[in-house]
């Protein structure tokens, strides 16, 4: 059986192997407490040690967990939406060329998603076009907000229009610990991540639905990482809000739960009960394998985990492990 993982990160070698003392788009490399960081101003981006792996070493790891294909997204340290647009565009181009090279040298094992300078929408559209049409990438990974602007802002309309026209999948993934729970996670229990990632994703679902984005761009392919977070569980209360509050009906045409099967999700739930709930809410054709390689909050043995789930049928497991991504992305 095949297996295709939509949620697997990488860093361009120019960043992960940046020699000490040299700069890369304004970043220098520093070691702190045994960890490697890219540093620029007060930005400090942790370089996961797995990013120093060669392609062959990464493939050996993939073989060890029975994953055939990584749909590569760069690590979110590459977003850099706070930097000037031309700097972001330069970083994105380099990331995308690097990922595209890997997909060409190992077409059976890697597909790729683009990094985009979302702080400059015109540049983001241009880079998405180049990535999809020239480099053969499948879409792009973006954050839940761009410098505190959510993706329902009218500035992003050209972006959504281009993504729909290109057939590019847009994969939503927060930037590090920058989640809405962060201000209340003062003790470091990892809830900025464990609750925060899931909260950010339901806010993004709400933003696209209540904000009318999915109505204006009905053929848009959006994938919400981390199982879409709290989206499917929280749909009942969103529906109630839509029914009783006019501000909730201002832009979106339909009740929120009817959009659950208009977007895609990865299976990164860390809970069989939650994954079963998702399948029953959004439909089995909407869920992809997603491991969050190489992070500690990922699924350690992603294919083994899916195959072990007793509440899923064999057909459902195959849909998640490969059939859905093969169909939707042509991988």
């Amino acid at each position: 059986m095949r297996s295709i993982d939509i949620h697997a990160h990488i860093a361009p070698a120019a960043a992960s192997h940046l020699p000490e003392g040299q700069t890369w788009h304004g970043f220098t490399r520093q070691e702190m407490k045994g960890r490697q960081f890219l540093v620029q101003g007060d930005k400090r981006q942790w370089l996961h040690p797995a990013y120093s792996l060669t392609a062959d070493e990464r493939i050996a790891y993939m073989d060890s967990v029975n994953v055939d294909v990584h749909v590569l997204t760069t690590w979110v340290g590459m977003y850099n939406y706070d930097l000037p647009g031309d700097v972001g565009a330069g970083i994105a181009r380099e990331c995308n060329d690097y990922v595209a090279d890997l997909t060409r040298s190992h077409p059976e094992r890697f597909a790729g998603m683009a990094t985009l300078p979302m702080q400059d929408v015109n540049a983001a559209v241009a880079e998405l076009e180049r990535s999809v049409n020239e480099l053969g990438l499948k879409g792009a990974q973006i954050a839940d907000h761009v410098n505190n602007k959510t993706l329902d802002h009218e500035d992003f309309l050209p972006f959504w229009s281009a993504a729909e026209q290109l057939g590019a999948m847009i994969f939503f993934h927060q930037e590090g610990d920058d989640t809405i729970v962060k201000p209340r996670d003062t003790k470091g229990w990892a809830i900025d991540n464990s609750i925060g990632n899931l909260s950010d994703r339901v806010v993004t679902f709400a933003t696209l639905v209540f904000g009318g984005v999915l109505d204006r761009f009905p053929d848009l392919k959006v994938c919400l990482a981390h199982g879409g977070g709290f989206t499917c569980f929280g749909a009942g209360r969103m529906d109630r809000g839509w029914q009783v509050r006019s501000e909730a009906r201002e832009l979106g045409a339909n009740i929120p739960s009817t959009y659950l099967n208009k977007v895609y999700y990865d299976c990164l739930t860390h809970s069989e009960a939650v994954l079963r709930y998702m399948i029953d809410s959004v439909g089995i054709d909407r869920i992809f394998l997603g491991s969050d390689y190489p992070y500690d909050m990922g699924i350690d043995e992603p294919t083994e985990w899916v195959n072990s789930l007793e509440s899923l049928s064999q057909d459902e497991k195959e849909a998640i492990l490969w059939k859905n991504l093969e169909r939707v992305l042509g991988v």
């Binding site: 839940d144 907000h145 505190n148 959510t150 329902d152 809405i180 729970v181 201000p183 209340r184 996670d185 229990w189 809830i191 464990s194 609750i195 909260s199 950010d200 339901v202 806010v203 709400a206 933003t207 209540f210 904000g211 709290f230 929280g234 209360r237 969103m238 109630r240 809000g241 509050r245 501000e247 909730a248 201002e250 832009l251 979106g252």
Partner: peptide
Amino acid sequence: IGSERQPRYHVRNTIGNLADRAVTFAA
């Protein structure tokens, strides 16, 4: 939680109440 990220569409209540309660469980 979330009121600042998305101040529109009654998200403050429909999502915020539920996120707040998960964080309080965690606290």
